[in-house]
Amino acid sequence: MDIAEFKARLEELGADLSRWPAADEEAALELIAASVEAQDLFAHAAADDLALEGEDVARVQALVARAKDRLGRGE
């Protein structure tokens, strides 16, 4: 997955990677681990999703924690 594909998926499916097809979710996690640009896109998409849903910061933290766990960088 390249940045353009990642950005398109974020716009289509949002930042909750559990809603993505499994293969795309794995590819997205690999890209996020390797690319600061992908990390920034993911963070902005998560914030946008939460604003649209009227959610609070705790949901963003849960999304980030889940992604870190999948990357083996849980804290």
Rank of each mutant, 00 (worst) to 15 (best):
A43H: 06
L52E: 14
R73G: 00
A62V: 14
R59S: 13
M1Q: 04
L29R: 04
E26R: 15
I3Y: 15
V36F: 04
R19V: 10
A8G: 03
L13S: 04
E37I: 06
A62H: 13
E75M: 05
A47H: 09
A43P: 02
R19W: 09
A51P: 00
A45Q: 09
V64Y: 05
L50C: 14
A43R: 07
S18H: 08
R73H: 05
V60M: 14
E55N: 15
V36M: 04
E26Q: 13
R9T: 09
D40S: 06
A22E: 13
D69E: 12
A4W: 02
A4I: 04
F42V: 03
D49W: 11
A34W: 12
G14P: 03
I32S: 00
D56E: 10
A46L: 11
L50F: 10
D2Q: 05
D69T: 12
A62C: 10
R19Q: 11
D69N: 12
I3N: 13
E37G: 01
L29F: 02
V64C: 06
A38R: 02
E75F: 08
A51Q: 12
A47E: 12
A38H: 02
L17K: 01
S35F: 09
E12R: 11
V60P: 02
L41I: 00
G74F: 02
D69S: 12
A46I: 11
H44C: 12
A22H: 10
D40T: 08
G72K: 02
A45I: 07
D2S: 04
S18F: 09
E5M: 08
E30S: 06
V36R: 08
D48P: 02
L63M: 07
A38G: 03
A43Q: 04
I3K: 15
Q39E: 06
L50I: 15
E75I: 09
A62N: 13
E25Q: 08
V64T: 07
R59Y: 10
G74D: 06
D48N: 12
